[in-house]
Each structure stands twice: as structure tokens, then as C-alpha cells.
Computed example of a mutant assay.
Amino acid sequence: MSRAGVLAATLVAAVVASAAPAMASGFVTGAAHPPQPAMKSARADTVVGTGTPGSCTSRAVVRAVARGGVIAFDCGPEPVTIEMRRTAKVVNTSARVVLDGGGLVTLSGQGQRRILYVNTCDRAQVWTTSHCDDQAEPELVVRRMRFVDGNATGETTDGGGGGAIFVRGGRLRIVDSEFVGNRCDRTGPDLGGGAVRVLDQHRDRPVVVRRSSFVGGRCSNGSALSSIGVSWRIVSSTFTDNRALGRGANPSRPGTPGGGSGGAIYMDGNAIRLELEDSTLTGNHAREGGGAIFFVSNDRSGTLTIRGSRLTDNPSDGFETLPGIFFLGASRTITDSVVR
């Protein structure tokens, strides 16, 4: 963008800004923070491993997730990668499932399978209420974990997507975690979530993402995060080199397979909200709309708030309302941020 374009974008941000004064330069340094150092959980219901890398197996992870509660890992003092031979699935009778890797544990889908699955409306995981799309439990928390090479390609339950993590219902929180090289189907309208796909959250509370990073995701739409009818609060996180590969947008143009929007983040729904704070989105790309963020509120009630963040070099090949952003909703508020 030209210098005049940058100044225009800054002016737009100032016009819609809240009462807080904008920084003179618009740049925010230190927008994202690295994961916290490794430490042991104060309490664990289940410990995966007995002190060696070889004791930390896919089978042990799958069993621990099905059992629920707080899950810690004892795989030795060095970083370890656990190659998942099956998807770990949460049983809906669990009130809370916490995976805490202590900053040392990577779960790998080996490019062959989804890594972690929650679905309160899946009878195979126990149907616990008559309102499965709006229940408080299970609550899933992933903390100080890495998820790499997850692959949901070909998954069809509830529309598929979610190469690393798929969640429908309950509540989700992601803290101090890293997602690298996860993917789902390359084409399709409304199909997304190279790393994380979320449908439904209890009482429409937002999914919380803190101090986490999403790198190299590939999917039709939303190659880091994708959701329908779900809000997000994202703080101190980074999104880099995520690409929406679909073609034809949504609804798909005649003769196209659809998709291609939201290089990093894809959101569709009605009264949805995205709060993005102290975060960086750079080098993401969409073949259609929203190289960084695609946000559509169908009833025009949704809101977008960006604070203290930097969104740069996120090309949209098709359409956008601000550099790297396609927004359709009630209001957008941008403060102390760079969008170019």
C-alpha cells in the first residue's frame, strides 16, 4: 500500500476508535509473547508417561483424554513428540479436560489424522443433554502444548474441518500453545479450520486464545481458526503463513468448489464477536476474501474489535474492506493498531 493508503487506513482506525488515544505511529511492539516456560501442573488426575519418551504413547494419550480431568505428561526432561495413531476423543460425561504439556510435549497427527475431538452432539461420545449444542460441559483446555501435522481432510461429521482440534459444544480455551502445519480439505464453502474448528459454545461465550501461535495452516477457509456461530477472544497471539486455498467463496460461484476466505481466521454467524488484542497477523493469504480475517455477521449484529495489534502483508486475491480484512457486521473498532 502507498504511504497515502497507510495514512488513510490510520485515519479510518482513528475515526472508529474508542475513547482510548491511539499511538502516534500506530505500531505496537512486542505484540505477541512466547509460551511460558515449562513447569509441572500443581495437580493431575492422570499422568501420561513414566519418565521416558518411550512411555509417552498415542494409546496413553487417547486413554487419558477419554478418562478426562487434568492430564500432565512425564516423558523425561527433553521435548518429546508423540505420534498419534488415533484421534483422542473427549467423552461428554467429563466435566473438564485439561491437557498440560509443560512446554515440552508435541502431539503429531503425522499428516494423517485429526489430533483432538470434542462433540457434545456426537452420540458415540455420550449424549448427556437434550440441548447438546448449548451445554457447559465438557470444558476443554489445552495449555503449553504443540499440535503439528494434524489433518482432517475427508472428515465429514458436522461439516468437517479442525485438523488439530475440532470442537462442537461445551467450552474451549487455548493457552501458551503452538499449532504448526495443520490442515483440512482444500476446497468447500464454510469448511475450515486447518488448526481449530469450533461450532457452538455454551451461552455463546467466546473461545479464549492466549499467548499462542498458528503457523503454516492450510485449508479451504480459515486455515488457523474457523467457526460458525462462535465468538473469539484472542490475546497476545501470532498468526503466520496460513493460507485459505479454496476457490469460489461462499456461497460458491457457479462452476467452482467454493471457499478461499479467511487466510488465518474465518467467522460466520449472526451475533458473533471477535476481540483481537496485542496480536500479530502477518504473511497470511486468501485466494478469495480476507487474507487475515474473514468476518460475516448474517444479521449484521456482529462486532470486530482490534486493539494494540499489527496486521500486515495479508493479501486477499478477491475482495476486502480493509487491508487483509473482509468485514460485514454492525461495527468495527480499531485502536493502537497497524492494518496495512
Rank of each mutant, 00 (worst) to 15 (best):
T335G: 15
E288S: 11
G194L: 14
Q110F: 01
V91P: 04
G102L: 11
E78Y: 12
R143A: 13
D134L: 09
R168E: 00
V118D: 05
S316C: 13
R59M: 04
G289C: 15
I334Q: 02
H33G: 06
R211L: 04
V65P: 03
N270H: 09
V61G: 04
N284T: 07
T29A: 11
S309T: 10
V105W: 04
R143Y: 08
R59L: 06
G192W: 04
M84L: 08
D100T: 13
M1I: 11
T240R: 15
G51C: 06
V15S: 08
T312N: 10
V215S: 14
A60M: 01
G229W: 00
V6H: 12
S337M: 05
H202M: 07
N284C: 14
Q110P: 00
V126W: 11
V207L: 05
R3C: 11
Y266A: 08
S297W: 02
R3S: 14
L172W: 09
S297Y: 02
M1Q: 09
D317A: 14
M1K: 12
V61M: 06
F147H: 00
A88S: 04
G260W: 10
V126T: 14
A38G: 15
G163M: 07
A224R: 08
G308E: 13
D317M: 13
V118S: 15
L281P: 02
D74G: 06
C184N: 13
R310G: 06
V142L: 07
D149K: 14
V70F: 12
L116R: 05
L245D: 14
R310D: 11
V28I: 07
V70C: 08
T120Q: 10
S212A: 11
A271F: 03
P189C: 08
R218G: 01
Q125S: 15
L328Y: 04
N119F: 14
T256P: 06
C75H: 06
R300M: 05
S226L: 01
A20R: 01
A22G: 13
R287Y: 07
S279K: 01
C75G: 08
G30Y: 06
R114E: 11
H131N: 14
T128P: 03
I228E: 05
A14K: 15
P34R: 03
L322F: 12
T93Y: 05
V91G: 07
S223F: 12
G246I: 06
S237P: 07
T52R: 05
A8K: 06
S25Y: 01
M267N: 09
N270G: 09
A286R: 10
